[in-house]
Write a protein that binds this DNA or RNA. Structure first.
Length: 277
DNA sequence: ATCCAGGGGGATT
DNA sequence: AATCCCCATGGA
C-alpha cells in the first residue's frame, strides 16, 4: 500500500488552466469526471480538479504533478515573448493557462502514430483499446489499465481487430522492448538529430516526430504542422493560399524560435475549438 | 453519399 | 521538390 500516492494533495498552480490543457489533444487518456478530470498516465490513475488557482490531486506525488503539468515553466515569460506576434494575441488570450505537458515518450509516440488521419475521439478510442487489450491491471479496480510497455502490444493481426486500421503495421514494428530506452536517449541529442532519428521509425513522419519532441522530450522549439495549423498559418501568413509545410516550418522557426511549440498549441487549440461546434 | 479527421510511405513526374 | 495514390475507419 502506498498512502502517499493515494492521499489528496493540494498545490498552487498559477498561470495554469487544467481543462483547456487536458482538452488540447496533447494526450489521449484524460476525461472529465464530476467537476474535475481523470488522467491516466503510464500506470497511474490521477484524479485532479482545479479551484481558485489551486490543484487538488490524488494518485500521484506532488513532484510528479509539477513535472507532468509543467508547473515549473515560466509561463508569463513565454506568453509575453509571443505577445509580440499580433496573429497570436487572440489565441493566447483564448488559451491562457494552457501548458505543454511532459508525457512519457513511448506513450506519446504510440498515441500520435495512432493519431494520423483520424479525429480526436477516435484516437482516444484506439488508445483505450490498446490499454484494455494489453495494459497491466494497475489498481484494485480491474478497469484501471496501465499503458502497455514497449514489447507488450498485441501482434499485428490482433491490433487490426482492435480497430487501429493500417496503423497496426506501424505499431507492431515499433513494438520493441528497447524503444523506451532508445527514446529517452534522444533527450541528449540536438533537436535536428533527435528529429531525424524519430523520422527513421516506421509510421513517424515530420508531424508525429514533432509531437513526440514537443510533448515528451522537452524540445519546445518543435512546431508540428497538422491540418489545423496549416489552415491557421496559411490564413495568417500566406494570404490564404496553400503553402508547403517546409515554408510553414521555416517561418515558425524564424518567428517563434524557442517558443514555437507554445505558439503551435495556442494556434491549434484556438482554431480547432473555434471551428468545431 | 461524400468529405474530413493532429499523416506516412512509396512511386511517378 | 511537387504531386498522386493508397493505406482503414468512423462521424458529420
Amino acid at each position: 500500500m502506498k498512502p502517499s500516492a493515494q492521499r489528496t494533495i493540494r498545490l498552487a498552480a498559477p498561470d495554469f488552466s487544467l481543462g483547456p490543457t487536458l482538452r488540447s489533444a496533447q494526450l489521449f487518456r484524460a476525461r472529465p469526471e464530476n467537476e474535475g478530470y481523470v488522467v491516466h498516465a503510464g500506470a497511474r490513475r490521477i484524479t485532479v480538479r482545479q479551484a481558485n488557482g489551486t490543484l487538488d490531486v490524488a494518485g500521484a506525488t506532488e513532484a510528479f504533478v509539477r513535472h507532468f503539468f509543467a508547473l515549473d515553466e515560466r509561463y508569463e515569460e513565454i506568453a509575453a515573448r509571443l505577445s509580440h506576434c499580433p496573429e497570436l494575441t487572440e489565441a493566447i488570450e483564448a488559451c491562457r493557462g494552457i501548458r505543454i505537458m511532459r508525457q512519457d515518450p513511448w506513450e506519446c509516440l504510440v498515441g500520435f502514430v495512432c493519431s494520423q488521419c483520424c479525429n480526436v475521439p477516435r484516437i482516444e478510442r484506439m488508445v483505450r483499446a490498446l490499454c484494455e487489450a494489453a495494459g497491466a491491471q494497475a489498481g484494485k479496480d480491474a478497469r484501471w489499465r496501465a499503458f502497455p510497455d514497449p514489447g507488450g502490444l498485441p501482434a499485428e493481426a490482433a491490433l487490426r481487430r482492435l480497430g487501429v486500421g493500417y496503423r497496426a503495421a506501424y505499431l507492431s514494428r515499433l513494438n520493441a522492448p528497447w524503444m523506451r530506452h532508445w527514446l529517452h536517449g534522444l533527450r541528449l541529442q540536438g533537436f535536428e538529430s533527435a528529429r531525424d532519428a524519430l523520422r527513421s521509425l516506421p509510421g513517424v513522419g515530420e508531424k508525429v516526430a514533432d509531437c513526440v519532441l514537443l510533448y515528451s522530450l522537452g524540445f519546445r522549439q518543435a512546431f508540428p504542422v497538422d491540418v489545423w495549423i496549416r489552415r491557421a498559418m496559411q490564413e495568417t501568413h500566406f494570404g490564404g493560399r496553400r503553402a508547403p509545410d517546409r515554408d510553414i516550418q521555416k517561418l515558425a522557426a524564424d518567428r517563434f524560435g524557442r517558443d514555437a511549440g507554445y505558439a503551435q498549441l495556442f494556434l491549434f487549440h484556438h482554431w480547432r475549438t473555434r471551428k468545431i461546434r
